[in-house]
């Protein structure tokens, strides 16, 4: 089948405004959008810029807006989209070129929540053990691949820009609800700030956008609860 692929492109060298460029690509229904982008880049227009690494929905490099919805290009099949496919860069970040956005702000928000185990106690001889029930408490938030689909679907993040964003809060949740972690107070500096979790207005865009099926909004509410119980 013949697919019309419209890509919102921007070339910073010409500092031109972003513009739609249309390509006609031969595709199979079971092709992924990533395959279409490869066909364009390899056979039609090598100047097209986009990120991808593993190509199997694990690395989180190729999140983009496909037909108006934040998705991973490597997990979205042509048969689910029809013959006209629109691809845009993620919203809310500065565009570097074409589909490549600047993720500096995203990762500084990630670092601000200290996304690692904080436990000052001297470690036991073997590993720090945890019951299966305690492990299950934060299981969904371990699935995050930092693709930024949730953060860039958030209306508060779009207009405000300084909101820490759902992805960073999910990462905080992964450790706050880990029974071995004692770092809530360190993480609170970022989470309890006026740009932190209280900015979430529960629009649920993030939950819909997550390609890993993480209940992101519920996760944010649980982090709010952790801060609340710490205060009272």
């Amino acid at each position: 089948m013949q697919v019309t692929l419209k890509i919102l492109r921007r070339d910073p060298a010409n500092s031109a405004k972003p513009g739609w460029q249309t390509y006609s690509v031969e595709a199979e229904p079971m092709d992924r959008v990533l395959d279409l982008l490869h066909k364009v880049k390899w056979y039609q227009d090598s100047s097209l810029a986009f990120r991808r690494s593993c190509g199997h929905g694990v690395c989180g490099s190729d999140a983009m807006v496909i037909n108006g919805i934040n998705r991973l290009a490597c997990k979205t099949l042509v048969k689910d989209l029809g013959t006209v496919i629109q691809v845009e860069p993620l919203r809310g970040f500065p565009v570097e070129k074409d589909l490549v956005v600047n993720l500096d702000g995203f990762f500084s928000a990630y670092r601000a929540v200290h996304p690692y185990l904080i436990n000052e106690e001297s470690p036991p001889e073997r590993e720090r053990l945890q019951s299966p029930e305690d492990r299950a408490r934060f299981d969904s938030s371990t699935k995050c691949i930092l693709c930024a689909a949730c953060t860039t679907s958030c209306p508060v993040f779009w207009v405000n820009g300084s909101y820490i964003g759902p992805a960073a809060i999910v990462q905080a949740h992964r450790f706050i609800y880990d029974s071995r972690d004692h770092g809530l107070r360190e993480r609170m500096a970022a989470l309890n700030a006026s740009t932190g979790v209280w900015r979430c207005r529960t629009a649920y865009n993030c939950t819909e956008a997550c390609p890993r099926g993480i209940p992101v909004t519920q996760t944010i509410e649980e982090v709010k609860r952790a801060l609340l119980y710490d205060r009272f």
């Binding site: 300084s162 609170m188 500096a189 309890n192 700030a193 006026s194 740009t195 932190g196 209280w198 709010k224 801060l227 609340l228 205060r231």
Partner: peptide, 15 residues
């Protein structure tokens, strides 16, 4: 500075 300060009333307003 206000945005970065960790003490604020946002939690209390939320409650």
């Amino acid at each position: 500075a206000k945005a970065q300060a960790s003490t604020n009333t946002e939690l209390l307003w939320w409650v």
